[in-house]
Amino acid sequence: MRDDGGASLHTSHRQLKQWAREITAAEPSFDAQKPLKWSSTPLIFDAEDHPDRTVAVGCLPLLVSPTIRNLRVNKMLVDGGAGLNLISPVVIKKLQIPDGDLEETGTFQGVNPGRSQPKGKVTLPVTFGGELNYRTERIVFDVAEIPLPYNGILGRPTLAKFMAAPHYAYNMLKMPGPLTIISVTSDKKDALICADQLYREAVAAAAAKAPAPAAEAPGGKKKPGKTSRTHSGKRTSSECCATVEDVPESSTDKSKRPRAEPPQTKKVPVREDGTGGAFTIGSTLDSK
C-alpha cells in the first residue's frame, strides 16, 4: 500500500523549496547536520528473532498493538510504504475525542480510488514497550474511514519518529529503548483474521462482477444467450477461420491436420487414345 498526502504533506510550496535547497546543497547547514535522536543505537535482526514457524512468510500483515493515549489499540498496520499515519474514526470515538478537536488537514490518495478528504488530523501519544523499557512519541494522525480490516496505519512518519525498523520476513518491529532494544512481534491471530477478511471481500467483489448465469426455459433447458458460446468447449466459425476439429490443440499435437483442398486444375489428353501428350485446364471446365 502506498498512501501519500494528508498531515505529512508539506504545508506550502515554499516549504518544499526549502527542503530542496537543504537536500541538494553542496555544503549542508549546521542545523541540517544534527544527528537524529537514538541514531547511535544499532538495530540488528539475527537468528534469535527467527520465527518458530515459517509458513506464509511475507504474506501476512505486520500488525501491532501500541498504547494510544490511554487505550491499547490492536490491528494497527505497520506499512513502510505509506507516507502518512491513519486512524479510524471508531478509535477516535473510543478515545472520546470530539470532532471539534480535530484540525484541518489536506487530502491524501492511496486507500480509496482518487483522493480522500480526512475528517481532520490529531496529535496523539503512542507508546511501545513494557513497564520498564518503553518509548512514547507524539504522532500526527489523519482521521479517515479505512476500507480495510485495520484500526489504523503506522507509516513512514511513525517509523522515523521512533527510529524503528520493520522486518517483514520475521514480521517484527524493532526500535531503540531507554534500557535496551524494544522488539514488537506481530499479532498472528489478528493477522490471520484480517487476511481472511480481505480474501472474503475479494471473492465477494469478484462474484459481483461475474456475468449472471443463463435463465432456464420450461423443461429444464437453458435459454440460448449471447454468452452461451463463450462457455462452450468449441469455437464457432465466426470466432476462427477453421472449425476446431481441423486445428491442432497445441504446437506439439500433430494428430489433427487441416483437410486438403481439392485441386484447382486437371490434365486432359490431346487425343482420345491418350497419345500426343496432355494439357492443363481448369477443373471446372468440360474435358471436351
Results as ranks from 00 to 15, higher is better:
Q33D: 04
T123N: 11
I68W: 01
P263A: 12
L159M: 08
A164W: 01
K189D: 15
E261I: 07
P66T: 00
R21S: 12
R14M: 06
R21K: 14
E249L: 13
R259T: 12
K226L: 13
A212W: 09
V203M: 14
G129K: 00
A165L: 13
S88M: 03
N70S: 12
V57A: 00
A164S: 09
L43M: 10
G129Y: 01
A32K: 05
L36H: 08
R135P: 00
P269R: 06
G114Q: 05
H231T: 15
R138V: 07
I153Y: 02
V268N: 06
T127Y: 00
A47H: 15
L71Y: 06
L60C: 03
R138C: 08
E261V: 10
G177P: 01
V126S: 03
S12Y: 09
K161C: 06
K222A: 14
K93L: 10
Q33W: 03
T67C: 07
P125S: 08
T227I: 12
V184W: 00
P89V: 10
K119D: 04
K256P: 03
A202W: 09
Y134W: 04
L9I: 04
L63I: 10
E104H: 14
G277M: 05
F279Y: 15
T41N: 09
G276V: 08
E131Q: 12
G6I: 05
D4Q: 08
I181D: 00
K223N: 11
D52I: 10
T275L: 05
L86W: 02
A191R: 04
K209M: 11
P157K: 02
G6H: 03
R135M: 03
Y199C: 09
I181Y: 01
P51T: 07
S238Y: 13
A215Q: 14
Y170E: 03
R72H: 07
T136D: 03
Y134L: 01
N74R: 15
L84Q: 06
N171M: 13
G58S: 04
S238W: 11
K234D: 11
S40I: 06
D31R: 14
T185C: 11
T227M: 14
R135E: 00
T41D: 06
D273P: 07
G6C: 04
A47T: 12
L9F: 04
L63D: 00
N151S: 10
L95K: 05
V64D: 00
P149M: 12
I182H: 00
P248F: 06
S237N: 14
L86H: 04
D4C: 08
